[in-house]
Each structure stands twice: as structure tokens, then as C-alpha cells.
Design a binder for these strands. Sequence first.
DNA 1: AGCACGCCGACT
DNA 2: GTCGGCGTGCTC
Length: 733
Amino acid sequence: METVVRVAVPIPAYRCFDYLAPAGVPLESLLPGVRLSVPFGNRIRVGYLIAVVETPGCEVERLRPAGAVLDAEPLLSETDLKLLRWAARYYHHPLGEVIQSAFPVHLREGRGAELARPSGLVLTPAGAALDPATFRRAPVQRRLFEILHGRERPLPASRLAELAGSGRTVRDAARRLVERGWAEWVDLQDRRIPAVVGSPLQLNPAQLGAVDEISANLGRYGVFLLEGVTGSGKTEVYIEVIRRVITRGEQALVLVPEISLTPQLERRLCERIEAPLAVFHSGLSETERAAAWLGFQKGEVGVLLGTRSAVFAPMRWPGVIILDEEHDRSFKQQEGFRFSARDVAVMRARMADIPLVAGSATPSLESIRNVQRGRYVRLVLPARAGAAVAPRYRVLDIRARRLQDGLSEGLIAAMHDTLAAGDQVLLFLNRRGFAPALVCHGCGWVARCRRCDANLVLHARESRLRCHHCAAEHGLPGCCPSCGQEDLRPLGVGTERVDEALRRLFPEVGVARIDRDSTRGRRSLERMLERVQQGEVGILLGTQMLAKGHHFPGVTLVGILDVDAGFYSTDFRAAEHTAQLIVQVAGRAGRGEKPGTVLLQTRHPDHPLLQRLLRDGYPGFAAAELAERESACLPPFGYQALWRAESKELALSMDFLARLREEADGKNGAVHWLGPAPAPMPRQAGRYRAQLWLKSARREELHAVLTDALARLQETPERRVRWSLDVDPVDFY
DNA sequence: AGCACGCCGACT
DNA sequence: GTCGGCGTGCTC
């Protein structure tokens, strides 16, 4: 009897495929988690071995032999695989695709694990003897030379990119140095985490207490919610915990919500931790990603700093997982395999028996609730002496006030005062472009997207109308396409418009606008932030990009231009999100002597949640919002799933979901159904979208219904409708 | 997801 | 007559 292996193939199907084991491969090589190349249809694919099975799931005659085992040893440990299987079940996503998502592209495509070796750059003796003046006409090479000169250990290839304008430039410079015999690549392969780590930090009692409590738990599962405002020193706690983990010969996985937050955290980690560190995010080349991933997998990299997708990177010696800005929604993947890196990280810590440290100034209500239930340990860092004092909030009632391009007189006056005192101002508006609509004053025509149920956004400087929901882009019409009048007016305010107004109102003052449009270039964000730090800029204006990570000690006045947009929304999480945004933006400001002031422009100054936030701070707001969630049985008190459908016709999408509901309805009284209903924006990019909402007080019941419905869907698939299932959705678009 | 197979419309 | 549209079924 021949050996049969069960293989997860990365296709959108909820089943595995069985193969005859490749000829001549001993049984002990057929370990769960190894990659195999398998014939699939008329192509060769990379699949993942799940198990050796006794009885195949189909007739033996149909079995084809697998091509080859690609790994001498599995790159995924049993725990890794267990986590991935859990994730596939929990998110109801096909196992093959889930496993695939754990691998960098090179490994998905079947390349050998030994090809992408982590390498580092060192100076040769000849190079070390050089004079910096040698590089008079090669600034990048010179910079690289100076960095290498000041280092004892090799500079990992993965860190080259951050050194100058573009990764390409530094890479070229490195190659030149090597060509001339002044530097060489060395293999970081056999380097283990050195036991010697950098000097300990000076910690205050609260930080020390937090570190002690976490480290008392090393080697055990535990979730610690590290709560502290900006500047309270969460990063030092992370660093010290990581130091202790490294000292034990274990590894740390550090997750941040966005690429833009990696450089500064990386710098701080490198200063203090003398263990190889690698970053892992979508800004790297595939070769770099594979190197970082494999380095961590092999245990050569002590600290892996990455975004969402790094949550599945295998750890040879699991030590700790750090989840920075735990509340951030970017941890939720919004397409394909829609997992929450936060929730996966918690499950991973549990399976690996290691602690997880989740930090935030504004924790998610889910995490606060878990503290209340005794599942998480709350550790609070009070604001440090010498750090920013809590800001003062003031509401600017803008009812019946004329705004000047989104700015009230009160705000403008406060800005003048602040700037006169030599301080900086930060303005927050979560809407990019010049104006969110272009209307005809004559007939009321509005510029709409042809393919979406949305207005086109005016980008005045580039004279373009753009749809923010699809790729549509148009030039500006000279006159109204409907009535021919030449009186088209921008309606509403975006950052570009405020930018223009500021330059008019404060001609002497430097303005930096930070949004997706103004920071397109590769290092433009960094450059702009530098200008702000150096005081060349008086007014800082931006979207939520501003709310993340960066601190601006020179800012003492924060203006939030449109609070209401967030508090009035159909999304039940909108209030939570807005409160987090307000507190996060407010936290960017202020310094020792000078507390910051936060001005909130609103037409609803009496909104209870806003009032609660201003009176009792984020914890008070969270308590109130949790009470509301509880009475409405919304998360974290109830569980949800959102079934989305899109197709060429709305009726098709609606009917598909209606069928799902009909077939399952009534079978489980514990699950409530809402819909199907058209999505908040029913038409996007020419496709019609509908959604079906499932809620239940009991998670298992919800999952049983989903499993059941998916099984039926496998039997009678509907091919004209593209659908996706979102477990624990955070956005309801 | 791909890919082949098959059945209907407008083209060299 | 056939080129190609995409609905349907299948992949061990």
C-alpha cells in the first residue's frame, strides 16, 4: 500500500487534495508543514503537507503522485501549523490560502529556503584603512562607509534601504564598495542571538513595575494591556522586556500597524538591543522579506519588527509578542483572508505559551472588556514628570458661524496667539483633496463618479476630479455639463483647501500638509516631519496619518476641524474610532512646561459621547460606550460576521445573500440576521454590492451557522457573484 | 483561482 | 463558416 499525503493547495476551496507520496521519499520526511510541489489540474503548484493519511478522500485511481518535497524540514512548527489551522477555521477561510499567507512570496513560489540567506555588509581591511575623503564624489558610498566604520557587527542587508533616499541607491553604493574590494558580504547564517544585549534603560517605577510583571510571566501565556498616553514611555517597557527575552535566548515579535512606524521603532530597538533585528513589511523587496522571515524562522534574528502580515512569521524560540497601538484598525486585513493580527497574535501567544504585550493610549473596547473579565492584565503608565501635561480640551460651537475654508474665527484667533508665542499648531481634518464635491451653482448638478455611488473629489492644484473609491479620474469641466453655465463651485472642505487658506491667512508661516496626496514620494513624509521638527513649519495640517506615532513637541495647539463627521455615522464603531483619533491627535501636542490645548469644532457641542470624552477622558468615554454596546448586544458583548456579495447587478448580489439566509434561517434561533441589504455604497467600480449581517451572543452558534452555510455553498456554488465572509468585521462599507 | 469545455452571436 | 464571449465544472 502506497503512502498517501493530504495537501492544502492555495485555492479558494474548503478542502484538501490527496496525493501519492513522491517516489523514494522516506516517511520521516513527510512532516506536516513541509512544502510540496504537486501537479494540480494541468499546472504545478506549491502545496502544504497537512498529514499522512490512511484512507484517501477519493478513489485511489485518481491519486496523482506529488512532485517533490521542497523542505528537508518543515519551515512551520507544529504550533505554527496549529495556529494557521485555527485561523482557517475561525475566519472560515480556505486552509491552503491561510497557510500560504504565512509565507513570503519567494517561498510560496517554491524557491528553496536556503537561497535567500540573510547577509550583512562589513568593511574589508583595505576598506577600513581608507580615508573618508576617498568618497568626495560619492556621497552615498561615503555615508555607507562611515556607518560601516562605526560598527562592530555586519550591517544587515535588510537595513540598507533606510539609510538614504531610495533603497536602490544604497544598494548600488554597497555594490560599488564590494566591487572595489573595500567591503564584503558576510553570511549572517550561523549567527545566533548573542547573549550580550545592550545596557539597561533607566526606568521609572511604573515602567519597572510593568516590566517586572511581564517578565515574571516569561515562558507562560498572559496578555498585558499596557496603557499609557503618548510620552508615558511604553517603548522603554517594550525594549526592556525584549532585552530580558533575548537574554533568555528567545525571540521577540514586534507588530506595528503601519510601515511608517517601523523606522523610528527600529532605531530605538537597535540602540538598545544588540541582537540581530529584521524588519518585515510590504515596503521591502521580496528577497529582503524572505531573508527576514527565514532569519527569524531559523532563530538567527532576535527581533522581528513588522506589520500585520508578520504575525504568522515562524519563531524558532518564541519569547514574546509586542503589539504596539493595539487599538489600530490597520491590524485587520480588509481583503482576501480577513484576519485580525491583534486577535491572531493573542491566540498565537496562547498556543506558544508566551506573553503578549499590547500597548495603547486608547485601547480598543475589546481589550478593555478583556481586562474587566480578568483575561488580560492591565498595566498603567502614568504620564512622566517632565513629559507633556494632559491637554486642555475646548469645544468650539460652530453652529450658525461662518467658516473660512473650514476654519472658525475662534480657531484662527487661537492660532495667531499660539504662533505669536513661537509655538506650532496642528490641524486635523480627515478628508483629503480640495473639496469633497463640485457643484453647479446654476442647476445643482454635482460631479459624480460614473462607476460608484459617490461624488468626485476636487483636487484643485492638479485640476483633477478624482473618485476616492475607484481609479476614476477626470479633468475639470470648464462649464456645467448639464446646463452649460460657467459657475462650478467646490463644496465642502478638504486638507488641500485648508492648506491654501492657511497660506493666505498666515502668509509668513510655513505650512506642512501631511496626507496621502502630499506624501506620495518615497521619503517625502520623513522630509516633511524633519522640517516640522526643525521649526521651519508653524502649522502642521493633515489627515489621520498625523495621529500615528510621531510626536511634535513644538505643537501646543491642536485644532480638530470636523469632529461631527466621526460621531454621526452608521458604523457602530465610529464613536470609538473618533474618540481614539481625538485623543491620539491631542497626544501629539504639548511639552513639559506648556500643556497643549485642543480645540474641537463641532455643530453638536452637547453630543453625550463627546461630552463624556471631554469630561472624563478616554477611560470615561470607554465605560459609557461599553455600556451602550452591552445594551445593544454589540461587540465585545456579541459576535458578528458580515457576508458581502458583489456582482454586475444589485439583484444578483441581493438574491445570492437572500438564498444563504433562507437556507439557514430558523435553524439556529441564537443567530440574528440583518439583511440582505445594499452596502452603504451600493455601487463601487461598476459592481453592485450587498451585505448580510449575522449577530449572535454566542460565538459558537455563529460559527456553526457559517460552517453550515459554507458547506451548502460548496455543493451549489454561485459563480456570477463574488462573495467574501468577514468574521469580526471592523468596517461596514 | 486558473483552465478547459461548450454553446451562442458578429466578423474575416 | 470560425473567433471569442463567459457560464459551468473540476482540480487529488
